[in-house]
Design a protein around this nucleic acid. Sequence first.
DNA 1: CGGATATACTCACTCAGTGAGTATATCGGA
DNA 2: TCCGATATACTCACTGAGTGAGTATATCCG
Lengths: 192, 192
Amino acid sequence: MSISEYSPSIGSVSPEYALLGFLSLDSAHGYELHQKLTAELGQVWHLSQSQIYSILNRLERKGLIQGTLQEQKKLPPKRLYKLTTAGQERFDDWLGSSSRPSARVIRIEFITRLFFAYSRDPDMAVQLVEEQIADTQARLQQLEDIQFTQPTGKIFNQMGLDLRIRQLNSILDWLISCRETLANSQKGAPTA
Amino acid sequence: MSISEYSPSIGSVSPEYALLGFLSLDSAHGYELHQKLTAELGQVWHLSQSQIYSILNRLERKGLIQGTLQEQKKLPPKRLYKLTTAGQERFDDWLGSSSRPSARVIRIEFITRLFFAYSRDPDMAVQLVEEQIADTQARLQQLEDIQFTQPTGKIFNQMGLDLRIRQLNSILDWLISCRETLANSQKGAPTA
DNA sequence: CGGATATACTCACTCAGTGAGTATATCGGA
DNA sequence: TCCGATATACTCACTGAGTGAGTATATCCG
């Protein structure tokens, strides 16, 4: 979800929190954030440079980050951003909240959250996975109920639902395997 | 994919073809299209009325559809749209093309295509499913190759890839079950 | 007869994402 | 030595997805 009253929500996952997340670890400028994002979550996010810069502008307008221009002798000046307290709060709230159980949202938003939760405290990451498993099971139940009430004539609606249910099931399997991985990496190697 | 040189592609599936599709079956106005879409593909698309109207405007600007204002005695005048030949061609091209094997694209774009293909000729729908199965298998192989080349340090990238692979697998299962359903409905009940 | 619901569309907005362009520096190879 | 590729660092103008509220009339039901 995007950071504002406006909430597109359906099918949309906002990259804003990913940037807030990296800034919560360390202040940085746009170019750097692009690199980190690509290196650490490149399989999750595909953001162009220009998108990064435009998001940074937006976040600054909203008062969640603040940038200061750093003159450099040789290279072009860079704008170093750091989180404001408002931004930190916003990010912390997000970090503790849960993701809508849908394929896209889980793949993008949830993994991003997991990444930052883990870097803060591996226990928290495991906790998040547990919660997400519960949410996903609940949603699965819901969809199965809906499936019964669907008119049988609309076979493509049925197919759509069927696919969604299958995908949620594969998400569930994945979450369970994540729980394993995280729980083990916690004992085996205390840091990432 | 959207209808223009501009192609957001990643994570985006354009609702334009859904509207072209319904207009290829019968000319209609915005309100009506919204109803049909909700009834027939409500589990696939969630378009607001305003979105429908804005897409219709765009399609008309692009010359793919043409609207004529129908005065009504009592109710407000409505704008009846029909496909232009350019629009018909564009839609036919799309109908024969294949979908990028990703969860979202399959769930939305592919099912939409299947719906219209089936209404034109059930054989064509089965054919589409076959092709999509092949594409999906190929993509699966690709992702599994990528998985090996991923640095093991980036566990969240790994998780992201793992999830994508699981989802593609569930899509594959679903496609196979679709092939069954469509093949049977073809013999059993020749019309939808 | 009065309020919910159906018909039919408009407008202003935020955010996602693309793609090309700007300007400078550094480093490796013909 | 210099020339082009690559890295640093950011800007701009654009299309399109999606929201949410508003307008105006008609009809139906209790």
